[in-house]
Amino acid sequence: MKITKLGEFEELVLLTVIVLKEEAYGVAIKKELEDRLNSTLSVGSIQSALKRMEEKGLLKSEFGEATNRRGGKRKRIYEATPYAFKVISELKEIRVSLWDAIASFKPGFNMG
């Protein structure tokens, strides 16, 4: 199985895009992640993750509506590609199997 290199932060952004569905654009993703991570993120970090993933074929995007609040600039709505779904589910499987392995070797290990 070929493993696509996907950074931890990228993965978080990707998941957020999927969660937000048609509302997935820069600022919304930033807010959502800030809430979940409970820390401040810069526009740059989100944008750079989005662009990198778009280049890898994990995301595709198109222009959305423009609002006053954005100084008349259009949003760019992101959407995960089927390939992305494949990659993250693979990642999840790997993780789950690894966790299972840990649990079977150390029965007393408490995850909480």
Partner: peptide
């Protein structure tokens, strides 16, 4: 090609 989106994001975050 990234400019419009980023400008908009910056502006929106600023207003927030």
């Amino acid at each position: 090609e990234y400019l419009e989106e980023i400008e908009g994001d910056l502006e929106e975050v600023f207003q927030d």
